[in-house]
């Protein structure tokens, strides 16, 4: 469990970082952010990048900025930052504050980054599910310019995205939810802190006691997180009752095409999608 030999680069600016990436990415040079996913894979030698470009020295990335109804999370921002009240304003901030506690364990959260999770695109990443649920945008910078990739165009498969190897994720932008939005989150894992087997994120508002602007995103069950349009459609226009929630949860479970692996059957994952969707909706009520 000693990593293979690599060279280490410590740029001080985004420009330096993308220049290095342009040069080294073709040679499997990689960004290292919090190292909480990359270092274990290097220790197992499943990854043997000959170059590491460490972005921890780039001060300009360590910021959470709010502009209008958009929050912009820089690539240096750690998971743990979201545990502080007010880190992100409004209901969105409260919601992220609940979600973050399901990510790994505290020591890992003090190193791992929001953008690193999004770059890594684990199917069970809570932050990826957030990006999907809120239709966030991934800001990808390279020597040839900056792209803003919408969530729907970003995730492509298990740990596969439309980000090019020479692109640095400098930030993720999330739209802030309007006041009064009811947000819920639920996930299931064998032990607290483990990657979830399935998770659900739900948000909606009530107008005249009926649900509008429903968002239901499922993570962990499929190769990447996504909003479930059928379930959202079934929720919009309905009152927030137990019967409605149960029906919507069943629709979400029917809509997913769950992964199967040596630990979990597709059936089990599907039943967890149903249970988690229901719990997230109940938590939001």
């Amino acid at each position: 469990m000693k990593p293979a030999r690599f060279s280490y680069h410590l740029p001080a600016t985004v420009d330096e970082a993308v220049a290095l990436l342009a040069k080294l990415a073709p040679d499997d040079g990689r960004i290292i952010a919090g190292g909480q996913s990359l270092v274990p894979t290097m220790a197992f030698r499943m990854a043997q990048p000959p170059h590491l470009i460490d972005i921890n020295g780039i001060a300009e990335l360590n910021r959470i900025d709010v502009e209008g109804d958009i929050v912009r999370i820089g690539a240096g921002v750690r998971h743990a930052a979201f545990e502080a009240a007010g880190a992100v304003p409004g209901v969105t901030g409260v919601w992220l504050g609940q979600v973050v506690r399901h990510i790994a364990h505290y020591p890992i959260r003090t190193r791992g980054t929001f953008c690193g999770s999004v770059a890594n695109a684990d199917p069970a990443s809570e932050w990826c599910c957030v990006v999907a649920a809120l239709d966030g945008r991934v800001v990808a910078e390279s020597a040839s310019g900056t792209r803003r990739i919408a969530a729907a165009d970003y995730f492509e498969g298990v740990m596969a995205t439309s980000r090019r190897d020479d692109e640095l994720v400098t930030a993720v932008e999330l739209p802030l939810l309007p006041d009064g939005t009811r947000c819920g989150f639920a996930e299931f894992s064998r032990r607290p802190g483990d990657f979830a087997i399935a998770m659900a994120m739900t948000a909606y508002r009530l107008v005249d006691d009926l649900i509008v602007e429903a968002r239901i995103a499922i993570g962990g069950a499929e190769p990447f997180p996504r909003r479930i349009a059928e379930a959202e459609a079934a929720l919009n226009g309905q009152p927030p009752t137990a019967a409605v929630f149960a029906e919507v949860a069943a629709i979400a479970a029917a809509a997913v095409d769950p992964m199967e692996d040596s630990n979990n059957t597709a059936d089990y994952r599907r039943s967890l999608v149903r249970a988690m969707t229901l719990r997230a909706l109940e938590a939001a009520a």
Partner: peptide
């Protein structure tokens, strides 16, 4: 072997 890391071989933690 399928249980070669602590992500696959689940030890009980203080939570469990």
């Amino acid at each position: 072997p399928l249980s070669v890391t602590f992500a696959d071989y689940l030890l009980p933690t203080a939570h469990d």
